[in-house]
Design a protein around this nucleic acid. Structure first.
Lengths: 331, 331
DNA sequence: CTGAAAGCGCTTACAG
DNA sequence: CTGAAAGCGCTTACAG
């Protein structure tokens, strides 16, 4: 039966509502016999406390707010996967908030805070520094714990979980250099992503250390547009290696290269920096830096629970391990 | 400033809290001058009503619950995209609930209902008939409006939004038949999905009408496993056409076929039934039945708002149009 | 160990 | 048009 309230349970178990509440929240404070009786009634009636009323009375909603730019991006969906699994384990509910590019960031944060979430997981990595600062300051004022999940922001105080994108990209570039490649491009996006900035930095450093000119080619994220974008590439550029911030960019470029008669990996290395499911749907399969996105989601959620429960936290910045997965698209 | 309450606003504007409440909920019932004064204070204080308190008092949370099996699946993420965009427009919040395969479905629904959502969007299409019935009955008892979003369930009363998967698959099979293909396989999943059942039915009917034996080959959804699974396929089977319930299955099969020296599309047609981003990352690009997943999400959310607002609804079963996108993987 | 009472921050009839 | 009061369904000191 739906719509059973604590009063119904109290009535049926012949106790006060305070006792029913205790059975649910502090069972050890209740006489075992009473407790069993109440528990039995709860089960019979299929009672579950109204989460809203509980939230108002206790001032804790056991709900976390997920702030993101776009759910449909594969990485966001993977992050959410990890977040949801852990949230479930700790019995937190999940509320999702998308922020459009043109929205007032403070208004958006006001909404999140007004929903009374106990904590915030911030996944939006498409904001510039100014907007990030506004968002984070608003959250700080509201005293709600926040963890950045796969978002890079230089601020010692803000907890975050990610991988070391800069070093990862530096390393893969070094490897390509070591195997003899010289004309290596980084394919990045026109759009701002906090993470891609790091990838670019790692690439640039490796190239400079080798005394080579870093060459960053920016595309839209849109695969169907990229194709055209790539068509003219070979006429104007000498290239023997490409690292792409997204697997889909790597693959659509690789396909264009194959259509232009390039031999992969003999003449051209192609690498993706995500390791999505795409990576094994291409021919040849795509060599990738594997970004453990699910884990980043899971770990950031776990970290957030610690802050919400005011537990001791050792490290507020977590960098997860990554590794490089060699496949057929590189020599 | 965070944590501003309605009392603070009332105090600063020198009115009662009832008036502040009216300004927010029934502004036309308030004297324009008073209203402006209150609005000004609200803005100055950055006040936003506590959604939880409002939810308890009004018994409406303006929150919808999304029930799903797995966020990380591409189709789920796309559906969510459409849902979130429309929810935002109508100012509904979104709470997500994942249900694991081994979970007690009624317990899971109890949680959703206890969260006091105003409506439910049901995206989980991995449940058998029995579990679906339990879930839907529980929701019905709780009097919460529900819409099935890209889920097929035979019950006249339950509103739903999808495409006609059966006819769509029937049509594409007919087309392949018309172009001379005879040994056409349907690649489906081992796992149950309400939608794939329809796809299978459409395929079977087209084959039978042509006097041919329907051949359904079941794979796990897992692309890395499928690859092995496909290896022996060509030795044991004669095949000149493959329709796959998922694009990723179609593409990994296509790649295996190419590795085995098959010419595509000359000797073999390959078709996907989704039209995900994968479809234009393969070589050749994948011919697909385009399933407008984003739209299904958006339309189902819009339909749900009507039920939540108790508006008149014409059709409780919506079938969106689909179309076939011809690409290089078919003649 | 248990109950009566106040209170969480709002909404909503009910008077006036 | 405005305010005082009850109430939404819980939790949580406070007594006993």
């Amino acid at each position: 039966m739906a719509n059973t309230t604590i009063y119904d349970v109290a009535g049926a178990a012949k106790v006060s509502l305070a006792t029913v509440s205790r059975v649910m929240n502090n069972p050890e404070k209740v006489n075992p016999e009473t407790r069993e009786r109440v528990l039995k009634v709860i089960k019979e009636l299929g009672y579950r406390p109204n989460a809203i009323a509980r939230g108002l009375a206790s001032r804790k909603t056991t709900t976390v707010g997920i702030v993101m730019a776009d759910v449909s991006r594969s990485s966001t969906a993977q992050l959410l996967g990890g977040i949801i699994d852990i949230a479930k384990k700790y019995e937190y509910s999940i509320k999702v908030f998308c922020i459009g590019p043109d929205e007032d960031i403070e208004d958006a944060m006001r909404i999140v805070v007004a929903e009374q979430v106990d904590g915030i997981l911030f996944l939006n990595d498409e904001l510039n520094k100014e907007k990030m600062t506004l968002a984070l300051n608003y959250i700080k004022e509201s005293m709600i714990p926040v963890v950045l999940s796969n978002v890079i922001f230089e601020d010692e105080e803000i907890p975050s979980v990610a991988i070391d994108y800069e070093t990862a990209t530096y390393e893969i570039t070094k490897q390509m250099l070591a195997s003899g490649r010289k004309d290596i491009y980084l394919f990045s996006t026109v759009h701002i992503y906090s993470i891609n900035n790091k990838k670019e930095a790692g690439y640039v450093q490796a190239m400079k250390e080798a005394g080579l000119e870093p060459k960053i080619f920016r595309t839209s994220g849109d695969v169907s547009i990229n194709r055209l974008h790539f068509e003219g590439f070979f006429e104007n550029n000498k290239v023997d290696g490409v690292i792409a911030v997204r697997d889909s960019i790597a693959i659509s470029f690789m396909n264009t290269a194959l259509d232009h008669g390039k031999k992969i990996p003999e003449e051209l290395d192609v690498v993706g920096l995500q390791n999505t499911k795409y990576s094994i749907l291409s021919r040849p399969h795509l060599t990738c830096v594997d970004t453990p996105v699910y884990d980043i989601g899971a770990v950031s959620m776990r970290l957030l629970t610690k802050y919400m429960k005011q537990e001791e936290v050792q490290e507020n910045k977590v960098l997860l391990p990554y590794h490089i997965i060699k496949r057929g698209s590189t020599i």
